[in-house]
Design a protein around this nucleic acid. Structure first.
Lengths: 119, 119
DNA sequence: CGGGATCCCCGTAGATACTG
DNA sequence: CAGTATCTACGGGGATCCCG
């Protein structure tokens, strides 16, 4: 599956571009355990700004990964939950996470070896 | 937020940061079929600049994904090939690629539905 | 041929303030 | 509470030139 210079519809690149960013995976992971409100999500992830969380959620919602539920209450309440599509990507993601955990040490080691600690 | 190699609290984020960028996966994929030279890689990917390919390759090499082989010939020749580590990530990656291909349509559809309304 | 150095543009991410 | 708007800084990435 070679991609010519003008080839846009590469599914892999398209999908990876979405979930490969800094926050999408974290959000997906946070929501994997259950529905969360905006500020809960904010705190669950920790080092994400409101802006980025908002953008990320919007994109995830547009792509059909996340469902946004608004409750017309006096203190506004908005809940986010995974859709079936969102849940389904958790599996291949899990493979990658497992790989990452299993090989992280090897990577760090290779990196250190290359860095300067040639010794 | 760069953390030293020995102080990585989250392997997943660390690994994803590396292979989640625009080019690493494409390089890995290109090399999956066999050893390639710099310019071959450049053409195989198509829309990558020399600079980015160079940077990407260097990072992949430092992380132990790719092996760089220099031939001290008159017209310089440099070949890149996957290491065992590099080959091993192809599998979980494949899962993700398969998912991407299988669900790309659903995503595009959801995106379109969200974008311009149902029209 | 393989790639480093430089210049520059532009998207993106952070912080803050504001709104409903 | 749940966002949005603005302003700014940073750095990714392309193009080009140059060197081994």
């Amino acid at each position: 599956m070679e991609s010519p210079p003008f080839d846009q519809p590469c599914p892999i690149r398209d999908v990876l571009d979405r979930i490969g960013d800094q926050w999408s995976l974290l959000v997906l992971d946070a929501l994997a355990r259950g529905t969360l409100r905006f500020n809960e999500l904010l705190r669950a992830i920790g080092d994400v700004s409101k802006q980025m969380l908002s953008k990320t959620l919007k994109r995830l919602e547009q792509d059909g990964f996340v469902a946004r539920r608004v409750y017309p209450e006096v203190p506004p309440r908005v809940e986010y939950a995974l859709t079936d599509l969102g849940r389904s990507i958790l599996e291949p993601m899990g493979q990658l996470v497992a790989w990452a955990e299993a090989n992280h040490r090897a990577i760090v080691e290779a990196r250190r070896r290359a860095a300067g600690g040639v010794a």
